[in-house]
Each structure stands twice: as structure tokens, then as C-alpha cells.
Design a protein around this nucleic acid. Structure first.
Lengths: 222, 222
DNA sequence: GAAATTCTTGACCACACGGTCAGGTTGGGC
DNA sequence: GCCCAACCTGACCGTGTGGTCAAGAATTTC
């Protein structure tokens, strides 16, 4: 019967598979984030997941395929995040402030995911280069067109779109990627909610004011 | 022995030592940047340096000590860079624009060094945590005081100093650290001088305009 | 209820890695 | 010219790694 696969109706088999893979992926995200691709070991991921090592290989085949699976989840989240905010229907103040705040929230909520991606790109993105070349470039081109539209409509200063996005990504992800540095500078405490709010608004201010957008809309939070 | 020493520089004992260590450090910087601490192998660094593996151990003892030696050179450069620009004697426009441009130039000229540092911090800075805790924190505190002074003098908007520095570091180093991502977005070409200039001025603009500094001084380049 | 399929797992490789070492070579001091 | 210390290096080693496998336990299918 046309049973939709979207919300699987949990037969024991399927449930086991989903539970195991989810457990493995979560453990892999933690370990890969902490030690990088080469530094992470399958044995450590297995221990963290509470499963024997051979089980990981049963579900994911190789270390590299497991790593890729972790990365793909992260990327699709981020790409959708941008697509949801950077649309021509919005005014630039709402869109950019909303996007920055959403991205900052991601850095707070899933810092490990961000770190894995950062490590991959740091090494030259050897394992996801093709994916980026197709998917990321396409999306950035679309967002750049939206920015150009806002500029043409006089809604913001003429700012080069690509560097603007690089700057936004850099500023927002730095709170996840370089948390160790930030903690050290801020007195060895993990950053608290109040400081995080200040940081968010600092980034929003730099972007909006830096782009010559006059009215940041405070109501548009994630 | 058909192998001629790559840097003969015929001279006393000391010259040999200096030439060898310099050669090893340069090779190590390349390999560590490309593959990270765990991914790099002593054999590969040795090959890159044109020396037998045992030679590296003769001069540096262990892989970790070699890695530390590479990192220390990078850090001292950056700390001095900030100290040279962020001084109370300057006005904020000159100082911040100069600092940003210097940092951008560093990212252009020594991207591998930047990537090694980024990888270390990504992993939680396990090998330089103590150094950061002392040296970096001290310096940031000093720079923050300078910023506060400018704010009190009405020379710029009241911007939280720490997040401001995090943002500047993030934006400038992103061009070295995430070069692979940027290349991919920009049509798979390495970024050219013209694009780099645009990127630099975009960052300068975001910082100065974002801080409510009215007169960017164009003359103060690196 | 038995055959087929999927899942689980301890034991086991082959190998690449960081590091060692003994023995050789080179260069400076006298 | 001789000696000593610094330098060089091929060959070697123990460990830890990703990955395999075969045999057994579940679960589904007929």
C-alpha cells in the first residue's frame, strides 16, 4: 500500500536500523569535531556510541563514508537557513538581521557540526569539494542576485555580495569554530547567554550599519 | 651521494643546523597546514624537506615538538601586528583600518600558517592552551582598554571590544583558513589581487562604518 | 516452523605510523 | 694528522589503526 516513507511506521527492523545509525552519527559528530577526520578513530566512535566497532562498518562501510554522512546533514541545514531568509520579497534589514541571528543560533546549538565543516574546508575540502562546487556556488549566486536587487533599489549601499557573505559566515561561525580561543580570552569561562546576545547584536550591527541599512528590525528573531 | 643539499650555504656547523631546521620547519608548515596534526606524517614532512625521517627526529625530537615550533612563529607575528596598530595615540579610523589591512595581508602572504593555528584552535587548542591563556588574554585586555578610551572620547560608537576583535579576526583570517570554500564559490579560481582588494575594503568598511567611525583614512596601508 | 534475510560481534589481520639505534660521515680544534 | 663531537641515515620495532570475517542471534517471510 502507498505507505509514505517520510514518517516511518516503526517496524522493529526499521526502528533498529534508525536507532543504530542515529546513535552512530551522533557519536561520530562528537568525535570528529573533537579530533578531526584523521585524529578520530573508529574504536572511539564505537565506544562513544555504545556499540562494537564492527557494527559501524556494517552500517557505514568505511570511516570516510561515515564522515561524509555527518557532513551532509550539516550542509543541508545551513543552505536551507540562507534560502529561508535571503529572499527578494524581504527588505534587506529584516533579511540580513534574521539570517545573522539564525546563523548565530546554529553556532550556539550545534557547534560540533560547525567545527567538522570548518576542519574539512581548512584541509582544502578534499572530501566535499564537488558538492560545494555545485550546490554552494549555485546558492550563493542566487543570494548575490537578491543583494544586487536591493542595491539597485537603493535599499542598501553598493556592497560586493560575495565578500559580504564570507564576512557573515566568518563572524557567525567563529563562535562555534574558535570557541576555545574565545573562552580563553573571556577568562576561561564558556560564553554565557548574555554575552552571546551581545555578540549577536554586535555582528548584526556590523552587517547592517556596514551595509548602510538604516532600520534594523528588532522584532525578527529566529 | 648524488644528492646535493638544497640549501648548502657552505659555512660553519651553525649554518648547517640553521639550514636544516629552517628547511624542516618550512616543510612542516606546508604539511601540517594541508593535513592537520594527526593527518600529517613525519615521513611526508621528511620527503617534502628532502631529508631522511631520522633527521627530523634528530633536530626536533618528537612530532609534537616540531608542531609546537611551527605554531610559535605564527603567534608571535600576529600578536605583534595588533600591538603595532591598536595604540591610544592613534585615532580609531587609522588604527582599525591599518590593523585590518595588515591582518588581511598576513592571510594572503602566509595562509598555511593561519590554517595550522585555526586547526589547533578548532580542536580545542590542546597544545597551546596555556600560551593563549596568558599571552593572548593579556594582549586583548590591553587592546580593549584602548577601544574603551576611544569610545569614552566619543570617537566611535559604544561597541563591545571583545566581540569586535573576534569579528575582525574571523573576517580577516577566513580568507586564509577557508580559501578552499572561497575558491569554490568564486568559480574555482584562486582569488586574484583585484578581488582581494575588494575583500579588504569590504572588511574595512564593515568595521569602520559598523563602529560609527566617520572618516576612514585611505592612506594608511601596510 | 523452517528458510531467508538482516543484524551483531569477538577475534583477527595487514600495514602505516612515530620513534629508536647503531654505525657511519663530516668538520673543527689542536 | 688525529680526535672528538656534531651530524646523518638505513634498517628496524612496537603499537594502534581501519577494515574483514565467519559464526551466531534476531526478525521477517513463506
Amino acid at each position: 500500500m502507498p505507505v509514505t516513507r517520510a514518517v516511518p511506521a516503526a517496524g522493529p527492523r526499521e526502528t533498529i536500523r534508525q536507532a543504530s545509525t542515529a546513535q552512530i552519527l551522533a557519536a561520530a559528530e562528537r568525535v570528529f569535531a573533537a579530533r578531526g577526520f584523521h585524529g578520530a578513530t573508529m574504536a572511539q566512535i564505537a565506544r562513544e556510541a555504545g556499540l562494537p566497532k564492527a557494527n559501524l562498518h556494517y552500517y557505514f562501510g568505511t570511516k570516510e563514508r561515515l564522515y561524509r554522512a555527518v557532513l551532509e546533514g550539516i550542509l543541508s541545514l545551513w543552505l536551507d537557513r540562507a534560502a529561508a531568509w535571503i529572499t527578494p520579497a524581504r527588505d534587506p534589514g529584516t533579511a540580513l538581521a534574521g539570517y545573522v541571528r539564525a546563523k548565530m543560533a546554529d553556532s550556539r546549538d550545534r557547534p560540533e557540526a560547525s567545527r567538522i565543516f570548518a576542519g574539512e574546508v581548512l584541509a582544502g575540502a578534499p572530501r566535499i569539494r564537488d558538492y560545494l562546487r555545485i550546490e554552494l556556488r549555485r546558492r550563493v549566486a542566487a543570494h548575490a542576485a537578491v543583494i544586487e536587487g536591493w542595491i539597485a533599489a537603493g535599499l542598501m549601499d553598493p556592497v560586493a555580495p560575495a565578500p559580504l557573505f564570507f564576512a557573515i559566515w566568518a563572524m557567525t561561525q567563529t563562535y562555534a569554530d574558535f570557541a576555545a580561543k574565545i573562552e580563553v580570552v573571556l577568562d576561561s569561562r564558556p560564553i554565557g547567554p548574555a554575552e552571546f546576545a551581545i555578540a549577536t547584536e554586535t555582528v548584526v550591527r556590523l552587517v547592517l550599519q556596514g551595509c548602510g541599512i538604516r532600520k534594523p528590525r528588532e522584532g525578527d528573531r529566529t
